[in-house]
Nucleic acid binder design. Sequence first.
DNA 1: AACGGAACCAACCGCTGTTCA
DNA 2: GTGAACAGCGGTTGGTTCCGT
Length: 353
Amino acid sequence: MGRAPCCEKSGLKKGPWTPEEDEKLVAYIKEHGQSNWRTLPKNAGLARCGKSCRLRWTNYLRPDIKRGRFSFEEEEAIIQLHNILGNKWSAIAARLPGRTDNEIKNYWNTHIRKRLLRMGIDPVTHAPRLDLLDLTSLLKPAAVAAYYPTQVDLDTLRALEPLASYPDLLRLASLLSGSASSPQQHTQLLLPWLLQAQMTQAAAATMVQQVTPQAAAADQFLQASTAAYHQIPDLVHANPAAQQQQLAQQPQQDHMADACRHGAVQPSIYDSQLDYVPALMQMASDESNLQQWSCTVSTSNNNYNVYSGVSTPSSSPAAAGQINSASTTTTYGLNASSGMHLYSELLDVSDYM
DNA sequence: AACGGAACCAACCGCTGTTCA
DNA sequence: GTGAACAGCGGTTGGTTCCGT
């Protein structure tokens, strides 16, 4: 024996609400509250389904709803949250006071989604669309051939695929491809950052699985991941030539040692400073290796500690103060001001005028 | 002025997990 | 324990407005 039917399915009005209907609904809820949507329409004198009343109230009539154009900050927040949460519009709306899931969903589909597509960013994955990139100019086939004498082909492309998730790394790669430095230096410069970004992403994914749907934890996750990601633009905006020189002079044994320590690399096979680089790139493209390197995440009050198996260049200015490469422990402080600028410089400001 | 396509957004549809008789 | 209805969510639709020709 189930419940009684909520309402008659026939004879109920559909379509746009009239001001009179809105008035009746608001007056009734003000007096009785929004307790029982099943009986509400009849009691309020409305020829509407309870579901229709609930939608009208939650999406339009609620007094705490903020109407009007989305601000720049709101739009950036939506993009960031969508990157993390996907099409969970209600979860996104919960972090934007005064905005409804329906409103955010509409705004995404009519404005943001199209803008990201124009920028060459996939609105689903938030990664640059590889089909729009001229990868041949990045890879410089002749230079890559130095690493892969017999196959300058799909294997190479596959190894570099992780770059697609990091627009700033791609930009950096593009910068480097136009310079006169060696392909070894390109790879040495990019690889540690790629690995670090992947570690962070993997750890963050684990974290979200563990704590969802707790809203506070999701917010912390968002800030932790963006804080880590923001180390990269600092490197990109720095002097590329100086960065290359600095990193080219720096011994790479620390990466190798850490990888060996976690069993990801056999020292006997990769014992020269350069030989392990292509192998590490290959490993970085394989998610199972990330798990093998055992990114573990612990939470404590206001900090996440991400223990990764591969350290970052200690001489990098971007890493200074944030990363302790000696202990291979990366601590991301949850500064409220961190993050929220991933797309800012890519957005077309004229759209807001 | 008339027309057609694009853009916008409120409302509906259908599905899923939860509640309750 | 079962099953019907509820509540909530994301996807989609359709009416209205805007804009270019």
